[in-house]
Amino acid sequence: MKYLLPEIIHKIKRLDLKAKLVVEGFLSGFHKSSYKGQAIEFADYRPYLPGDELKRIDWKIFAKTDKFWIREYEEETNLRAYLLLDNSCSMAYKSKEISKFEYSSFLAACFAYLLFKQHDSVGIAIFNKNNYQYLPPQFSKFHLSKILETIEKTKPEGETDILRSLTEIGKKIKKRGLIIIFSDLFDNKDNVLKALKNLRHKKNEVLVFHILDPNEVNLDYNEPIIVRDLETKREMMLDPRKIKKEYQESLRNLFLYYKRECIAHYIDYNFIFTNWPFEYAFFNYLEKRARIK
């Protein structure tokens, strides 16, 4: 599991390798058989009917009962998953070696890989206030490569407008599926929630990963500083020591608000710091995936 630590993964350059390493590492460490079991699940037995393929007869039952019973398997759900990755400039923030965008990119890549392994079709939308790139969900190795390549080429740019971006992307999502959002949600909280609710109203399952750098909450500065907004380039002089408490309180209220409102609307809200291992996100995903099934 130690390979899943962000600082180790960060050292690997190729995103596909990273994703593979992370996913395989996670799965092998977690429960190897669950992967196989999830692909084709046994559902029930039914009497043989003419026309049924002989290979589907359960010969062991026949030996016990002298009757032909057909094993029925549940087909793979063929889930449509949409990875929504925020690439606004605020996502470029990093207090240590890994930025929020890099962390989110890894997660998105890993989820793409994981979903592919699970025979789910995966699409991706990378968005900021002014534009977005969208790849509709497909299940193919080529598509997976395309997704990974798109993620790899994308750099943080532009400002954040979650409502506008998600509304635009929501229009593109024709079939309901699982929507996984990676964002720092630095926007008006009501707009954010409105955007999430819109997605949820279309019967989508929504899984939100609220990605933050630890220093964004801790404000670990020991002197007055001039902070520059990565998105607007606006500057402001402040003494973090004086406002830290109040600032953290407001963030805490915000997280609680998101959590409360998301629960109320059956949205999975997950708060993640960029120094946390990736497995945390995977556990949340698997939990969600299980529920969808």
Partner: peptide
Amino acid sequence: FRFRLKRVDFSSLYFLVALKKERFNFFYQ
């Protein structure tokens, strides 16, 4: 004093600005 201050990139001033009693908003300036 201003030039002596360290300049730090921050993801967004959205929540800093949103604080009511802050010492660094418009009133502070």
